[in-house]
Amino acid sequence: MIVAEQKPMEEIAEMIKDFNKILILGCGGCVSVCLSGGEKEVGIMASALKMFVKNNQNRDIEIKEMTISRQCDWEYFDMVKDAMAEVEACVCIGCGAGVQGLVDVYPNVPIFPGLNTGGLAVGKVPGVWEERCAGCGNCILHLTGGLCPIARCSKHILNGPCGGSEKGMCEVDPKTIECVWHLIYERLKSIGKLDNIYKIMPMKDWSTSSDGGVRHLTREDMAKLDAEEEHKKNVELEKKAEEAEAAAKSQG
């Protein structure tokens, strides 16, 4: 899931310093599961923010609290229509995608991020999450025993482990970061696929990651309507061009 953590109160208070009536909008998706942006956290943030503002900006603010099922799907945004009309600004505590989903739908309301989004992670033990996927758009897990060096190697190298691997840990932080290449080695050994890392892995094609520009995902069977409309438009354009050509010929 997508993990995130709350921004410092001081930073959020600075964002909303010109507003008196605010909506704090939570998300019932990933950030609820990682305890940073769900209904409960909306309550905590609302209370803490009110007190912070009173204490540091010497004023009272009114905060509306709401949480929608997901902030990454347009069909849920309609539910906050009335609330958005009432408030002067919104602090969104979904992931970065959630903030921008709202921005698309409510162009006239200032919308601020209340969280710092931290990647695609799994829960290791209750209260602890660790990054697992970098969303590079070109998965190589079949070659690396199901362990990702792009997300989990500090240098994202494809021919590891580097010289900084000691006793299974990474030199960047030997206390908390495991050397994923050590894990890959052990894993490939146990499934009899060591050949995979005896070969040189070629340079990665990063054009499928965000380096290639904003990525779009289209399921054509779902997006059919648009495609049909586009087709109709194209037919019309062709027709017009033919007519213009015919007209030019008859004149000439």
């Binding site: 021919n159 482990p161 080695y185 005896y198």
Partner: peptide, 17 residues
């Protein structure tokens, strides 16, 4: 190449690479 990195048995293979 670091002959003293871990896993040791893989180091010579990395040298070969």
């Amino acid at each position: 190449e670091n002959p003293f990195g871990d896993p040791f048995e893989f180091r010579v293979h990395r040298l070969a690479k």
